[in-house]
Design a protein around this nucleic acid. Structure first.
Lengths: 196, 196
DNA sequence: GATTTTCTGGACCGGTCGGTCCACTGTGGT
DNA sequence: ACCACAGTGGACCGACCGGTCCAGAAAATC
């Protein structure tokens, strides 16, 4: 895949497919998304799809998943990078809640995962995203501990992992029941825990 | 569905289909489970499946989901019903971890949900399960507060919601990456939080 | 400007899978 | 004994969908 010869036009088309697919996945019930949908949305043809993603659906969806994973992180980078005070944590919390409230029931990552299933590629994408996200949260906790705002006894990595789990689960409940209160409860409770 | 006339034999067959499907869903990649798989596993025929579940796949899967939801709760009822001491909480935590560790990457509920998708029926099943589960945890927290073991300032419902989110998310991470540490971290951190 | 390579379009194929249909076999009531 | 209706088996269908193939347009390379 990486050794494919692409002209500027080719790169543009490839990108158009990925972003179009991502946007579509974001807004629609992902369970039944077909290559033909994506073809229609992105104004391309079957030939192009298989030209740029020779391994077909799985390769395309993995590319989209990677794209979305990067989006998730970059979306919160400004907040994630500066978790050095309680108001900063609150702002981060609000941005997460706002993001998923706006996104409604559709979760791009969850979408992709249910499609790609349990292929090794999917596991790798998720692992990378989770690890990165967790790392940044743990960094924030360490910063707070360095500033004397959080007890040193707190295991930063463990609490960061709990954050990840809480967010994932909160989003999942949001997706299937439409209620965002679990996401809020998870974030608030864990921040409370940091406050001690 | 409820007004169908069923003889003893009929009820037995219907149950065999549900339980066989549930067992199969529990052990296999649920993404690609077909009616024909279920037919083969349960030793039945297409005719029977549509005889007992006239609305086809969706009705059958919803029945299985309800069956699994009940199983999840009953599985933990002994622990959930008696969260009145710290050792009891620990035992509950261990049972949850053990259950999902044994189950490995396969999550019956998650399985069903990804199949049934976002139909109203699915939302109802999940809502019911979540509400019930959360209620029992909240009861436990209330008991602890009554016994003076947990600060009265703790919002039992909110923390219970956080538990639900943490468990769901932990299981999801387990499913996609194979690591159980997020589930453990979520449970441990929240119990820690209760301890204050 | 010739040629080689990439890009694009879309007809087509083959397998899969949910769902239908109908003939046949119990089974329980009278 | 009969009959109505539940239960069972499996052939069959039609839609859908991922994937193939090839022919022609457009660029790049020389």
């Amino acid at each position: 895949m990486g050794d494919m010869a692409l002209t500027a036009k080719g790169r543009a088309t490839r990108q158009r497919i990925i972003e179009g697919a991502a946007a579509y996945l974001r807004g629609d019930d992902p369970a039944g998304v077909t290559l033909d949908d994506i073809r229609a949305i992105t104004g391309t043809s079957k030939g192009q799809i298989f030209h740029y993603f020779p391994d077909g659906k799985e390769e395309l969806f993995l590319a989209v998943a990677r794209h979305e994973a990067r989006r998730v992180l970059e979306d919160q980078r400004p907040h994630l990078g500066a978790l050095t005070s309680w108001p900063a944590w609150q702002r981060w919390r609000d941005s997460v809640v706002a993001r998923y409230r706006a996104q409604g029931r559709s979760c791009p990552m969850g979408a992709l995962l249910s499609q790609v299933g349990s292929t090794p590629g999917a596991a790798e994408v998720v692992s990378t995203l989770v690890a990165q996200w967790q790392f940044e949260i743990a960094e924030g906790i360490h910063d707070m501990q360095a500033a004397g705002l959080v007890r040193p006894a707190v295991d930063a990595e463990r609490v960061a992992a709990a954050f990840i789990a809480g967010i994932q689960g909160g989003v999942q409940v949001l997706r299937t029941t439409g209620s965002i209160e679990h996401l809020e409860a998870a974030l608030d409770t864990l921040i409370d825990h940091l406050r001690g």
